[in-house]
Every structure is written in structure tokens, then in C-alpha cells.
Design a protein around this nucleic acid. Structure first.
Length: 644
DNA sequence: GTTGGGAGAATTTTT
DNA sequence: TTCTCCCAAC
């Protein structure tokens, strides 16, 4: 048995070794929340609980993996069988098993954001809507998503935005109805459907519900403050029988309410679970007191929160710098200078991170870092698996794997010259609304259907598929990809993209990834849920090992660095004017700034440029962010220009 | 039916 | 400045 008291402080110990019953752990930033969860898992396993009866829900797959790795270090191999991952991942896992109960195949397809938007476009066109004033697909997508994640009808969501919409709300409802219908016809689920249907599965099917209620004797939820209504309800249902929920979170760090997260879930937890014990973790092990003072001051004004104060355990260090700079270029130069100084002081590049509100805030810095030859990695907005070339190859693999995947078929065939949506639709129909590439007759039928101009191009692809199914290369997805690339795709990339070489490398790396997973089927069923923050797909591990990290604040959640820079701490940028809109409510932006500041261990540098250049060459003045301006002067070291 | 050119719009956060 | 949409020519 591990001596848990050797690794945990009294509050952490109380949480990790608590008995049965609901438990709310209010863990402020940097107070060892992960440590507590890791030891909680280890404790339960060591006490003899079967690992598969533990459900660990996290915000990213990466967080789940890290926690289990660490718990494995404490409690050994048994930990491997713990159910863990994001809500989407766990719902996916349950739905793969029981999908027919909801009228889906086990092999239902997950539509990523891009697929969903395309589909919405199709619906708009089909209904002959659209036009200048009709909302764009992104807007429609986010409206539908809002509705789904709050379990509200689309009409209700539209109601609150009527003034912004110039069209008949019923038209939007019609698009939504058609979209739902279309998804069902194609047997696909979008991200929101995973949650919606996961919950439906549990609520509407008593046998499934009872099975999982019996299985999950302990449910642990990380980042509980960022759960939405569906997620909270799913946990409540699953825990109904055993009642063992451990919710860990920090209402100060709720930064996803735009996605439906509702921090009332955490505020109301004691009411929903009257038997709940509450543990507060307030001792911060991460940051120097000067950084905590800034974080505390920033968040203090937010109403209706659990009152918590970060208490420092580290000795005093340096006050955060507020750097008042001329413009974005000077900001980039200043950050580069300070990174160089950090290197001289013995820090590694990986000790430093640059955080910002939105991806485009970092463009100037990226250029400057490249010019200066400083290794850096960006967790970009577009996930690796969302890039066009990766999706092309995935489409090939999906066609090889599954004869009913219409989306994949469309995508693959559209790569051929002269073949567009109309032709593809005809092929599909003539093949009997399926294309089973295992079936020789179907392969030949398709080859004959393809129009003359494209037939030659298709030939090597058809050949690759044939060899994948019969012959000595059967069942080797890497060989399939290889033949596809050699016979067609390399030339296609060359013709289509300027950076064909890089894309080719991605594709080859993809083949390696697939060979590492248990099976092609398993890989394809999960791939839509892998994101760039999960780092399952490491493009360049050598570079990544020691490089400055550039990230949005959202993606930096749960991480920490000795040195942190915050870019564009100006009104309109951070807080973002788009987020504030007409409302005066800046609570969420404030929490976001709090999250950014509390990522730093030793040194926090807040950049406040005075002028911003727009893309079309315009220039306008920026006021310093309220989050800087409001701070008492004595909490910061203010420096002007490049005299830091 | 498809593709490519030219004009126009537009810049948040993500599973 | 870059991505997206619409229209006209293959």
C-alpha cells in the first residue's frame, strides 16, 4: 500500500482517500488538482476496486493519458483498464457498442466541423435559401451547436438573437430540421450528437443505463466547471445508483460558456448532491506570490463565485512586468529579446510560453521568431486531422474499410479531375447507394462509371484498393496509402498546393500513426476526436522537445511554464470585443485572463502595445486592457518601450 | 458539370 | 492580406 500522506497535503489527502459518497473538490489554479486525481485513482485501485469500474472524465484526451500514466506509476498495471477520456470520447465508446438502439450502425461516421458545415451548406441550397442576408454556415453551425449543448430547441436560441438576424427564423429552423434529417440518412453524428445521443442512450434505454450504472462505481470528473448541461446530466444519471461522484474544478476557471459550459453546474453541486462533502484546495505550489497577487486582484471583482484565495507556498520572487510597447512589431521584438535573455539565464526554450486570446494575435511574433531562429511550436487552430490532405487520405482509408461511408466516398472521388458533386452522386446511386471496395464486381462497376477523362487517374487508386483486399498486401493500410500516394496523390498535391512536400510528410506520418494503433477500424473510429492539443500526433518530436510554446489561453488550460508572456493585453483584443459584444459582462474574459496569469511559475510578462495595424493597412490606438489598468500599481513593474 | 478567375468580405475561444 | 463566393468559360 502506498503511503499517500507522503505525497499529499492534508486537504489533497482528504480528497484522494475520501470514502464513498459525492465529493466536490474546489481546486484553485496550481493547487495540485491533477496530483489529487492521480492519487485518487491509485487509491481506489489499491483498495481493490476493479479498474473498469472507475470512470475518469477529463477535458482533453491528453489530460486523461497523463493522469493514467502517473497513476500507473503509483498503483501499477491495473490502472490501464480504467475508463477515461473526454466526454465525447466516452460517449463515442458507449455509442459504438449500442448505436443500433438509436437507429445507427456500429460504424457510424463522425462528422468533424468541416463536414458539418458542408452538410449545412447543402441543406441551405436544397431548401433554396441562402443569399446575402442569410446567415453563413459557421453561424448556423454555432446556433445549432448552442441549442444542442443546452438541450434547447433552435427556436429558443434564435429568440435571443432575433435582432441580429435579418431573415425569417423559421427558415433557419427548416435548415436545422433538414440537417438533422440528412445526418440521420447518412448515418453520421457531429460532435454535439455524440453528447446528445450518449445521454439519450442512457436516459431512454433502461438496460444500457443499468449496465453502466452498475459498472461505474466511481466517477471522477476533472474541470467540472466547464461541463455543460448534457455532460452534467450524463454524470448525474450514471452516478444515480452508486452515488460516488468526485467533481473537481474551479469556478474561477470556467472559460467555455460560449460552448454551453455552465459554471452553475459546479455552484449547484452541493444542492444536487446534498450529501456531498466539500474540500477546498487553496495552497498554490506553482507560482511566486507576486504572480498570485495579480491573479487574485484580477478575479476578485467577479460576482457569484465560490470565494477562494490563492495562498502562496513559494518564497517571494519578481513582480510581473507590464510592458508598454509601441505596436505589434515592437511587442514581437521585445518577446524575442526576453526569450534570449531567458536563455542566457539558463532557461530552456521549453520553459517559456506565449499566450494570447486569439490565434491571429501571434502572427507577428511567429515571423519574428522564425527570423531570429528560435524554435517554437504552435498549437494551431486547425487540428492535424482537420487538414485537407490528411482528410483526403483518411477518406481513402474509410472507403477501404467501410462500404457505406458516403462522406468518404464523396471526398475521395471528388479528387479526380473533372469529377464534382453531381457526378459523384450519380456514381453512388448507380452502385446501389454503397461502394464495397472488398467486392471485385463493385470495384469494376465503379471503374466503368467514372467518366473517361478521369478513368486513367482512378486506375492506380482502384488498383491500390484491390491489393488492399486481395493478395499479399491485404490488410496493410500503410501499403494502401503508399500505393495511393505513389500512383496518384503525390502528383495531386504537387499540382494543388504550394507546400506539397510538407503535406506529403504529414501523409506519410499518418501511415506510421495508423500502424501504431490496434487496428485500422479502431483508428478511424477515434480519429475525429483526436485534436492537436492531445499531441497524439507529433509532427516533429525533435523540435517539439525544446521549443517555445505559442498557444491560445484556452489551449493552455491545465499547463504551466516558468516564464509566460501574454500578448495584446489591450481593450478589444483581451478582453475580446467580439466576446463582450454589447453586454457589459466581462466575467468570462476576466476568468480567461486569470487562467493565463496563473500558468506562470516564476515570471509573468504582460504586453500592452499602443497601436494596432489592421490587415488593410489601417492603424488605430489601443487602450490598455482593463485587466491591467485596474490593477494596483504596486503589483506590477511597469516598463516603457524596449527598456525592460 | 466543373473549374478558374475576379471581386468582395472579414478577422474568438474548441470537442 | 487572405479566404470565400459567385459567375462565366470550358
Amino acid at each position: 500500500m502506498t503511503d499517500f500522506s507522503a505525497f499529499l497535503n492534508p486537504e489533497q489527502l482528504a480528497a484522494a482517500t475520501a470514502g464513498d459518497g459525492p465529493l466536490l473538490v474546489l481546486a484553485a489554479a496550481g493547487t495540485g488538482k491533477t496530483q489529487t486525481l492521480v492519487y485518487r485513482v491509485a487509491y481506489l485501485v489499491e483498495r481493490g476496486l476493479p479498474p473498469e469500474s472507475i470512470l475518469l472524465l477529463t477535458f482533453t484526451n491528453r489530460a486523461a493519458r497523463e493522469m493514467l500514466e502517473r497513476a500507473h506509476g503509483v498503483a501499477g498495471d491495473a490502472v490501464g483498464a480504467v475508463w477515461s477520456g473526454t466526454f465525447h470520447h466516452v460517449c463515442n465508446r458507449m455509442l459504438r457498442r449500442h448505436a443500433p438502439k438509436l437507429g445507427y450502425r456500429h460504424e457510424f461516421v463522425i462528422a468533424d466541423r468541416d463536414d458539418a458545415r458542408k452538410l449545412i451548406d447543402d441543406c441551405v441550397k436544397e431548401l433554396k435559401l441562402g443569399g446575402k442576408d442569410f446567415p453563413r454556415r459557421e453561424v448556423l453551425n454555432s446556433l445549432f451547436s448552442h441549442a444542442a449543448n443546452r438541450a434547447l430547441p433552435v427556436e429558443d436560441i434564435l429568440e435571443s438573437r432575433l435582432d441580429q438576424l435579418k431573415v425569417d427564423p423559421m427558415d433557419i429552423v427548416r435548415v436545422h430540421d433538414r440537417y438533422e434529417q440528412r445526418k440521420h440518412e447518412l448515418g453520421i453524428m457531429d460532435f454535439d450528437d455524440l453528447l446528445v445521443n450518449g445521454l439519450r442512450l442512457i436516459e431512454e434505454h433502461a438496460d444500457v443505463r443499468e449496465r453502466y450504472q452498475a459498472q461505474f462505481r466511481h466517477i471522477l470528473v476533472d474541470e467540472y466547471q466547464d461541463t455543460n448541461l448534457l455532460q452534467a446530466r450524463l454524470v448525474d444519471r450514471l452516478a444515480e445508483r452508486e452515488g460516488n461522484v468526485m467533481a473537481v474544478g474551479d469556478d474561477f476557471q470556467c472559460i467555455y460558456s460560449w460552448r454551453g459550459a455552465d459554471f452553475r453546474n459546479i455552484m449547484d453541486f452541493p444542492r444536487r448532491y446534498p450529501a456531498a462533502s466539500i474540500v477546498k484546495l487553496e495552497r498554490n505550489y506553482r507560482s511566486v506570490p507576486e504572480i498570485l497577487a495579480v491573479a487574485n486582484a484580477c478575479i476578485a471583482g467577479n460576482p457569484e463565485q465560490f470565494q477562494k484565495t490563492l495562498r502562496a507556498t513559494r518564497p517571494g520572487g519578481r513582480k510581473p512586468r507590464a510592458m508598454f510597447l509601441r505596436d505589434g512589431r515592437e511587442q514581437a521584438g521585445a518577446v524575442v529579446d526576453l526569450i534570449r535573455r531567458g536563455l542566457q539565464e539558463g532557461r530552456a526554450l521549453r520553459d517559456m510560453a506565449v499566450l494570447y486570446r486569439a490565434h491571429f494575435h501571434s502572427i507577428e511574433l511567429q515571423l519574428e521568431l522564425t527570423r531570429a531562429g528560435i524554435a517554437h511550436v504552435i498549437t494551431s487552430g486547425v487540428g492535424v486531422f482537420e487538414q485537407a490532405h490528411v482528410k483526403d487520405v483518411l477518406a481513402l482509408l474509410r472507403v477501404a474499410q467501410d462500404g457505406q461511408d458516403r462522406l468518404a466516398f464523396d471526398r475521395l472521388l471528388s479528387l479526380l479531375p473533372g469529377v464534382g458533386p453531381r457526378s459523384v452522386a450519380t456514381y453512388w446511386l448507380k452502385l446501389g447507394s454503397r461502394f464495397d471496395s472488398r467486392d471485385k464486381a463493385q470495384r469494376e462497376a465503379l471503374a466503368a462509371l467514372i467518366k473517361p477523362g478521369a478513368r486513367e487517374t482512378w486506375e492506380p487508386i482502384g488498383e491500390a484498393l484491390a491489393r488492399f483486399h486481395d493478395g499479399d498486401e491485404a490488410g496493410h493500410p500503410d501499403k494502401l496509402v503508399e500505393r495511393f500516394v505513389a500512383g496518384f496523390y503525390a502528383a495531386y498535391l504537387e499540382k494543388t498546393y504550394e507546400n506539397a512536400k510538407e503535406r506529403l510528410e504529414d501523409v506519410q506520418e499518418l501511415a506510421v500513426q495508423i500502424m501504431r494503433s490496434t487496428s485500422l477500424g479502431a483508428f478511424l473510429q477515434e480519429v475525429a476526436l483526436l485534436t492537436n492539443t492531445d499531441q497524439a500526433y507529433d509532427k516533429d518530436p525533435h523540435k517539439r522537445a525544446d521549443a517555445v510554446r505559442l498557444s491560445t489561453v484556452h489551449q493552455a488550460k491545465g499547463l504551466e511554464w516558468p516564464v509566460v508572456f501574454i500578448l495584446w493585453a489591450t481593450e478589444g483584443m483581451f478582453p475580446s470585443s467580439r466576446s463582450l459584444g454589447e453586454t457589459e459582462d466581462d466575467a468570462e474574459e476576466r476568468r480567461l485572463f486569470y487562467v493565463a496569469a496563473t500558468r506562470a511559475r516564476d515570471e509573468l510578462n504582460i504586453c500592452v502595445p499602443e497601436w494596432r495595424q489592421t490587415r488593410d493597412g489601417g492603424i488605430f490606438a489601443c487602450k490598455p486592457s482593463r485587466f491591467v489598468a485596474e490593477l494596483p500599481n504596486e503589483l506590477l513593474r511597469s516598463v516603457y518601450g524596449r527598456r525592460y
